[in-house]
Amino acid sequence: MPAITFIHPNGRSDRVETSDGESAMQAATRHGVDGILAECGGNAMCATCHVYVDESWLARLPAMADEEDALLEGTASERLPNSRLSCQIHITPALDGLIVRLPERQV
């Protein structure tokens, strides 16, 4: 199964194994990764699963929908060009090794 790495603001990192068809958010919450709140449970409604995608991976992610784009305007930590909502990143074998950084705050 593809594995992805979450890097915390203090530099600590969590590498988690994903399950079939899971989103990056679901993998994070299932493994208890701090820093992903996901208050809405993955329904693209709350912007509390914000991540900064490692630059080298950015182009390999599917494009974001308008909904995600609008929600990212309301993130608690600054929106950057590599900001995404992890509930909208569905893990495929092609994303094995994905690296994302966690923001300082989710609310």
Binding site: T29, G32, L37, A38, E39, C40, G41, G42, N43, M45, C46, V107
Partner: peptide
């Protein structure tokens, strides 16, 4: 508790559209 995924606000396309207002007030 990690409450993500509870259905107190529902889930899916009809999930409470005012959930952010509720959480803000509560917080």
């Amino acid at each position: 508790r990690r409450t993500s995924g509870h259905v107190g606000f529902g889930s899916g396309i009809h999930m409470c559209v005012g959930q952010l207002v509720a959480r803000l007030e509560g917080e």
